[in-house]
């Protein structure tokens, strides 16, 4: 097997809060092979954005890495100097955030921002602007030359997100991390961006780590999927296998809640009964136990480990 682009091993991260230590990630394992598109799904608040901010080392000040390792193309990211890390974020890893304003500067024109990002290039400013306009066009933005003169607040939510995507693609990264990049887009653009990402991945062999709550988007875009629950990885495998034959009870319930799968129109959508456990005061045993219909004795005592070859699940019941 080739060596992975990204290899996360037993990563644990916590936040210091007024109530105590909030254990946002616990023993997270995950790999991204070159040229693969890996999706992350999971309950809101389960730690997806925390995982990504740890990878790119842009954690909140009250966050702490409790253990584990992250390797990017064989380099240990957690021990990298912040200068080297900044350089890596500049061209090895690119990021598209959930909220496009995170990557856009509100007081600079789009054109200025898109040329600044090419500061390593020796091309003329006019060339850089032309390149920026071409990328805007490739993500489906009309009047690209005109948009370059505008400020972010002149653009609609979806246009801002496409600008952010175009900016992330400018450096032709080895790994593109996208945190819900298409939630603000209409379906035709969403499909277009999905195809764009697929094409980019084929053209540049770039790997993609993609977070989305839209299960249809994950199904169409991703080769593999990682399912997270309450700060842990509970299932991994090829998207097809995980979606067609889910093994972890949480994954099964999550898929049952997808309104896209419900044919008859209903005023009451299915939900997963119960709440996420309190991450400050974690239950013993399996984190999903209080919401699981299948739990057995051992689930209350011992946290399950992620087990399996290609299709893995962390569950005592399916493990038997």
């Amino acid at each position: 097997m080739t060596s992975p682009v990204l290899d996360v091993r037993r990563l644990s991260v916590s936040y210091q809060t007024g109530r105590g230590t909030l254990r946002a990630l616990r023993n997270v394992n995950m790999t991204v092979q070159p040229g693969r598109i890996v999706g992350i799904v999971g309950e809101s608040g389960c730690g997806k954005s925390t995982l990504i901010s740890t990878i790119i080392r842009l954690l909140a000040p009250n966050a702490r890495i409790d253990g584990g390792s992250i390797e990017f193309m064989g380099r240990d990211l957690l021990s990298l100097e912040s200068e080297a890390m900044r350089a890596l974020r500049g061209d090895g890893i690119s990021m598209v955030f959930q909220d496009p304003m995170t990557s856009l500067n509100p007081v600079m024109t789009i054109g200025r921002q898109m040329t600044d990002i090419q500061h390593r290039d020796n091309r003329s400013r006019a060339d850089k602007l032309a390149r920026a306009a071409r990328l805007l066009e490739r993500v489906g933005i009309a009047d690209p030359a005109e948009q370059l003169k505008r400020y972010p607040h002149h653009l609609s939510g979806g246009m801002r997100q496409r600008v952010a995507i175009a900016m992330a693609l400018m450096t032709e990264p080895a790994l593109l991390i996208a945190d819900e990049p298409t939630t603000a887009l209409d379906a035709t653009l969403e499909v277009q961006i999905i195809h764009r990402l697929r094409q980019l991945q084929q053209d540049f062999g770039c790997a993609v780590l993609f977070i989305s709550h839209h299960l249809g988007v994950i199904a169409e875009l991703c080769d593999e999927v990682v399912v997270m629950y309450a700060g842990e990885v509970v299932e991994t495998g090829s998207t097809r296998e995980v979606f067609l034959a889910p093994r972890h009870p949480y994954t099964r319930k999550l898929l049952e809640c997808d309104p896209g799968r419900i044919e008859e129109s209903t005023r009451h959508l299915p939900v997963i009964a119960g709440k996420l456990p309190d991450l400050v005061d974690l239950p013993k045993g399996c984190v999903f136990r209080s919401r699981c219909d299948e739990s057995i004795d051992i689930c209350a005592r011992k946290p399950p480990e992620l087990e399996g070859d290609d299709h893995c699940a962390a569950c005592h019941v399916v493990g038997q």
């Binding site: 999971g42 309950e43 819900e180 997808d258 309104p259």
Partner: peptide, 20 residues
């Protein structure tokens, strides 16, 4: 305006059920 963007399908269901 986009009340369910960024919510997982279960919480999205909760929010929409609450609205209805």
């Amino acid at each position: 305006d986009e009340p369910t963007a960024g919510l997982d399908v279960s919480i999205q269901g909760e929010v929409l059920n609450l609205l209805s």
